[in-house]
Design a protein around this nucleic acid. Structure first.
Lengths: 161, 161
DNA sequence: TATTGTTATACTCTATAACTATA
DNA sequence: TATAGTTATAGAGTATAACAATA
C-alpha cells in the first residue's frame, strides 16, 4: 500500500508538568484524579524519551504487544483493547501495514474480518520496544522500593476492576 | 466578546476500557505505564459522567480551581499548571470569558500580563463542580479502603516527585 | 438484522512560529 | 534581549454516520 517512503514525524516534545512553586493547588492535591493525570503525563514523557527515534506512541506499543501475543486478532477487538472506535483501529492498522510491521490475513472463521499478525520485522521491533519500555519503567520507578512498586500496581488494578 | 449564544457541545461518551476476556495482555499487565493509562481513561469516564451537562473537562476543572485559589494568576502560569502552551491557555481563557466564568483584569505589576479572576458565576460553578468531583472520587474509590486510597495518593505523588 | 471493515467528514486539543507591546 | 499575550496555521487523534459484504 505504501507508495512512497513515509518521513518519520519529528519526535514530540516530552511533556513534563512541573509543579509551580508558590502556587495554591487547593483541592487538586487531594484528588486521585489529578494525581493520576499528573502521573500519566509524566510517564508519557518518559516513554517518549525512551523510544525516541522509534516513531511510536503508547497506543502503538500496546497494539504491537497485543497483536504479538494474540495472532489473528481482529481490528474490532484491537479497538476494544485500546478503547478507540473501529475506524481508528483501522487507521492504526494501515499505519502498521505501510511500515510492514503488521500483516492482514483473511480470517479463516469469518470472511468479513481480517486477522492481524506481526511480520518478522514487526516481531523484532516489538521486542526492542519491550526492552526499552521495561528499562524506562525501571528508571521511572527508581524512587520506589520493589514493594511500593508492586503495591502501586495492585492498587491501580483494584481501582479499574 | 461573545456575540452569540454558544451551543453546548454534546456530552462526550464516557470512555471505558473494558478488559477483553480471553485475551493475552502479555507484558502490559506488568507495566505501571499501562496500569496508569487504564486508570486515567477510567477516571476520565467517571468525570465525564459526574459532570454531564456542565460542559466541562478535566483541564477546565483544573483551571477553574487554580484560578479560584490564586486570583490574579497569569495565562502563562496557567499554561504551566496544565502542561500546555501559552496559546492554549489563551484559548481556554477565551472560552471561560465567553461564558462569563473568568475575567481578565490588568495586572498591577506588569502591563503585558493579564490577571485572571473568577466571576461570581465562575465561583458558583466551580463550587458545584468541586462537589460533584468529590462525590465522584468517593464513588470511584469505593473499592479501596481509606488506607489504600491514601497510600495510592502517596505513591503517585512520590512517583511524580 | 447485526457485525466487520471501510470511507468521508468533522471536531477537539495542542503545537509552532511570527508578531506587538511591554519589560 | 527576553517575556506576555496574541494570531494564524497545522497536525494528531479520535468520533460519527453511512455503506458494502458477510454473518
Amino acid at each position: 500500500m505504501a507508495t512512497a517512503a513515509v518521513a518519520p514525524r519529528p519526535a514530540p516534545r516530552a511533556v513534563r508538568i512541573e509543579r509551580v512553586g508558590g502556587l495554591d493547588y487547593d483541592v487538586l492535591d487531594a484528588l486521585l484524579g489529578f494525581a493520576i493525570r499528573r502521573a500519566q503525563l509524566a510517564i508519557q514523557g518518559s516513554f517518549t524519551e525512551a523510544t525516541r527515534g522509534m516513531d511510536t506512541t503508547p497506543p502503538r506499543f500496546t497494539a504491537l504487544v497485543v497483536i504479538g501475543a494474540n495472532p489473528g486478532l481482529s481490528q474490532t477487538v484491537l479497538g476494544k483493547v485500546l478503547g478507540i472506535a473501529r475506524s481508528g483501529a483501522m487507521q492504526l492498522t494501515d499505519w502498521f501495514e505501510e511500515r510492514a510491521l503488521v500483516e492482514r490475513r483473511k480470517s479463516p472463521n469469518d470472511a468479513r474480518a481480517w486477522g492481524l499478525h506481526l511480520t518478522a520485522k514487526g516481531e523484532k521491533i516489538t521486542a526492542r520496544l519491550k526492552e526499552r519500555v521495561f528499562a524506562q519503567e525501571q528508571q521511572w520507578t527508581a524512587h520506589l522500593s520493589p514493594r511500593e512498586r508492586s503495591e502501586l500496581l495492585r492498587l491501580l488494578a483494584k481501582l479499574t476492576g
